[in-house]
């Protein structure tokens, strides 16, 4: 079920009412994993675990044929992700572009991207800095101050191996809230995008919820995407239908990928 929500109420809406959280079906995640492994087994039988098939919510829903993301868009996304982390860990951002760029510069895995940002001409750099500042304004409005008792963590990497490691479902969650589930669903996921929301957003969120359910053995409570380009939010309560639809997307994507090779 998609919920319309204003950006400023985003975090409160994600967590929702404590009393209204659904009970975790302790057999659900195991059942989903078994179903997925059965359906994937044939199509990835030729894949070596040493060179697994990596699938992310984006590649599953939009396919690998969408082409690579332009460098400037990648840079904008990485810079805004750094600002999400800073907002939640330090509470504020003083100079969006400077802060975000220094965070990327300290990350050896971002060397190439940092180099491409430094190679921009002065006008291009100023335009990117202005864009990043505009995206940060949306973040400031939407994230606010999150209580530390909600255990906020940022840029959480998920990496779920399936079929003996032949397939790896991976994602990076910009914001994760809530403790691990025991009897009721407690974890909420927020994906932040610098692009506008498209009609594939629900399907992508479903896959993200599935990956988290497989990882933690309990489905998340809610998943949401915030567009820092528009301030729009898409939020979904996680239920069995969402997860099983996502599961079919994963199987289809693996079949298509293997069929193409």
């Amino acid at each position: 079920m998609e919920t319309a929500v204003a950006a400023k109420d985003l975090v409160l809406a994600l967590r929702g009412e404590r009393a209204a959280r659904p009970r975790v079906d302790p057999t659900l995640a195991g059942g989903l994993r078994a179903w997925l492994e059965d359906d994937l087994a044939l199509s990835v039988a030729d894949v070596a675990p040493s060179a697994p098939l990596f699938l992310s919510p984006r590649t599953i829903i939009e396919g690998a044929s969408q082409g690579s993301t332009p460098t400037l868009a990648l840079a904008r996304g990485a810079l805004v992700s750094a600002l999400v982390a800073q907002r939640l860990s330090l509470g504020d951002v003083e100079h969006p572009m400077d802060d975000a760029l220094s965070a990327l510069e300290a990350d050896p895995s971002q060397r190439e991207l940092v180099s491409s940002i430094h190679q921009l001409d002065p006008d291009g750099f100023a335009r990117l800095a202005a864009e990043v500042a505009a995206h940060d304004t949306v973040l400031a409005h939407s994230l606010g101050a999150i209580p530390s008792s909600w255990l906020p963590r940022t840029n959480v990497r998920l990496s779920v191996p399936l079929v003996g490691g032949r397939v790896v479902l991976g994602a990076v969650v910009n914001v994760m809230l809530g403790p691990p589930a025991s009897t009721v669903s407690t974890v909420c996921l927020l994906d932040v995008t610098t692009a506008e929301l498209t009609d594939t957003v629900q399907a992508r969120l479903g896959v993200l919820a599935l990956i988290e359910a497989l990882r933690s053995a309990a489905p998340p409570l809610r998943v949401a995407t915030l567009s820092t380009a528009t301030g729009d939010v898409a939020m979904l309560d996680v239920d069995d239908a969402l997860l099983t639809t996502a599961l079919r997307h994963v199987v289809t994507a693996a079949d298509q990928h293997q069929g193409a090779n």
Partner: peptide
């Protein structure tokens, strides 16, 4: 400050 934010995020 940006690096401290990233460091804290990982540590948290």
């Amino acid at each position: 400050r940006g690096v401290l934010g990233a460091v804290l995020a990982e540590a948290i």
